[in-house]
Structures are given as structure tokens and as C-alpha cells.
């Protein structure tokens, strides 16, 4: 009973914090409202006994929101005295579309013929979930992970305007790199 109350309480917190993202007037508040919403969801996942997934949701989302808040504030040149930001753009079209999407999804959730429970949950629900999601495709998933990491690295390399020739000279023979920002290990 208590677990049910906590679960629904967290659901309300998650939704309200999600709404707050579009109501508050500064990027820092928007970011951390979203973080709060995700923390509530992470705690709900904990209540479902998906301990690892739940804690990981909280870890990843807090870190992501911290980084997002920093970048958004830097790009928008924002400080607490400039709280006039509006998170909603093109509200005339966006509002009906989002209400429509919400109603569609909510109708799907309410009217779908949910199956009744067969059997009982396994001892380790996290392992069961992982097997169910990945199962025979584990090798594919592992490969995709490496490819994604390689893509990120190559993207950064291509986007960087300074190459190794700028740093180490045309013949790459400069003993110490000429960097505008000195590093900490004297490369």
C-alpha cells in the first residue's frame, strides 16, 4: 500500500516537474526541473525493483542536466537577473499538436488490451530485462556501441579547426606542440 502511494506520488512529481520545464523563466530552472522529473522517474524504476536501471537513470540524467544547464546558460549569456526566457516557441501551432499527441498516447495507454500477468517475476529482474532486450542480439549491440564511440571521436576530429600540423609543424617535428591553451602534461 505504502509502495503504491509513493509510486503515484513520484508520478505526480515527475509530471509536475516536467510541466515546470515549460513554465519557468530561466534555463537553469528549466534544466533542473527536468532533472527533478527524471529523478522521480528513476525512483519509480527503483520501486519496480530494477535497481541498477533506476540508479543509473538518476546518475546519467543529473550529469546530463548539469552539462545542459552550463551550455545553455553560456550560449544564452544568462544569469539569474535575466530571468525572462520563454521555453515555448510557436505556441499557436505547438499547443494543439502537443495536446493531440498527449491525448493519442493516453488513449493508447487506456484502451490497449493489456495482458494479465502470467507466472511471477524472476529473481533478478534486471538480468531478465537485459536478456529480453538484447538476447541474441548482444553481439550486434556491442558492435553498435563501438561504432557509435568511433563516430563521436571522428566527428570531434573533423570539427576541430586545429589539426596536428598546426600543433606540431608541417613535418610534425616540433618538439613541443604550439597550443593556444597550455595543457597540464607538457605535451
Amino acid at each position: 500500500m505504502l509502495a503504491h502511494l509513493v509510486f503515484w506520488g513520484l508520478a505526480v512529481v515527475a509530471v509536475l516537474a516536467g510541466v515546470a520545464v515549460f513554465v519557468v523563466n530561466s534555463m537553469a530552472r528549466a534544466s533542473y526541473s527536468l532533472a527533478l522529473s527524471f529523478i522521480a522517474v528513476g525512483l519509480q524504476v527503483l520501486l519496480l525493483q530494477q535497481l541498477y536501471v533506476g540508479v543509473l537513470v538518476i546518475l546519467m540524467m543529473v550529469m546530463e542536466m548539469a552539462i545542459m544547464a552550463v551550455y545553455m546558460n553560456m550560449f544564452m549569456g544568462m544569469n539569474p537577473a535575466m530571468m525572462s526566457m520563454n521555453m515555448v516557441h510557436g505556441a499557436r501551432h505547438a499547443l494543439p499538436v502537443s495536446v493531440g499527441v498527449f491525448l493519442l498516447l493516453a488513449a493508447g495507454a487506456l484502451f490497449a488490451p493489456w495482458p494479465s500477468r502470467r507466472g511471477s517475476p524472476p529473481a533478478d529482474v534486471t538480468a531478465a530485462l537485459g536478456t529480453e532486450l538484447m538476447g541474441p542480439k548482444m553481439l550486434t549491440m556491442a558492435t553498435v556501441g563501438v561504432v557509435m564511440a568511433a563516430t563521436i571521436v571522428s566527428g570531434v576530429v573533423l570539427a576541430a579547426h586545429r589539426t596536428r600540423y598546426d600543433r606540431l609543424g608541417d613535418d610534425l617535428r616540433r618538439p613541443r606542440a604550439a597550443d593556444p591553451q597550455p595543457g597540464g602534461v607538457s605535451r
Binding site: L56, L59, V62, M63, I67
Partner: peptide, 13 residues
């Protein structure tokens, strides 16, 4: 262990 890791990230915030 992951719990403590998640908490130490909160320092960023």
C-alpha cells in the same frame, strides 16, 4: 556502489 556514484555526480549540480 552505483548508488554512491550517482550521488557523487550530484556535486556537479
Amino acid at each position: 556502489v552505483v548508488w554512491v556514484n550517482a550521488l557523487d555526480v550530484l556535486a556537479w549540480a
